[in-house]
Amino acid sequence: MAMISVRGLNFEYPPQKILTDINFELAEGSVTALVGPNGAGKTTLLRCLTNLEAPLSGHIEVDGIDIHRHPRNAHRKMGYLSDFFGLYNDLTVRQCLTYTAWCQKLPKSEVHKRVEVVAEDVEITDYLDQKAGSLSRGYRQRLGVGMAMIHEPKILFLDEPASGLDPEARVNLSAFIVRLQQRGMTIIVSSHILAELEDYCTDMLVIRDGEIRSHVKLSEHQSAQVTRIEMSLLTQNAAHVELITAHPEVSQCYQEGEGVQCDFTGDTAAQSAFLKYLIQHDVPVLRFVPMARTLKSAYMDLAKTSKGEQSV
């Protein structure tokens, strides 16, 4: 059964249509990267999924619960950290976590223990008695994540969680998400930094102009053994490109300046044979680098197929 199921979701801020006919399903334990250019509707989609905004129409089910009919039951299954989240600066870290635990109706006897466990999880145990207002950006982020998951939600929504974090804090955040993934939590992360999503994402939802343009299951994508090969040629002409494109294991070919890139479906032996084939046909290869397909390259390929290309 899908952990998140969205059907016919439409959202408007009159007179603008923000989301149009959104449909997708995400499996339990998946980690989904929600990517798209600025203004594509990522945050609005996350806010609709968490039922913080009421859509015009459509159905959203989370772990089998219709979030519009049973908002509170659905919220017990979810944790959410928004892009611009706030903390109660005058409360201590312990008080922030305790208050959130009470609000989530955790049994009173478990609150103290749960606070300790979460503090350890997000590595803020040493700061429990400090005021939230005195924490650095990275530690505020950790506290925010801790508050979002104090009730052990099945699904965690993170909106640009790495923005404003220093490189070390970003690495820690990635490691933390990997740990949550290993526990079987379903996670949706909206982010611009695709390289960081690479380590743990199982799915990628590409949103553009308020529409889901693609739902890529990265595991399937990777198992297809598509390899991007980057080549530099001494002289480049149309005949060389035609020759490369004509090879049976080349699925796509792109020209970029002096270089040529192609998507190659064969294994390493086939790659070796492909290089031999190029040399035998007098293609002046200076550089031949097989690259692993990345989330970024997958996204950029999708972006290239759309009109009005924008950077991420």
Partner: peptide
């Protein structure tokens, strides 16, 4: 103003 309203809206408090 403090962006804490979303936390309350997401909680189980009635």
């Amino acid at each position: 103003k403090g962006n804490t309203w979303d936390f309350q809206k997401m909680s189980a408090i009635g």
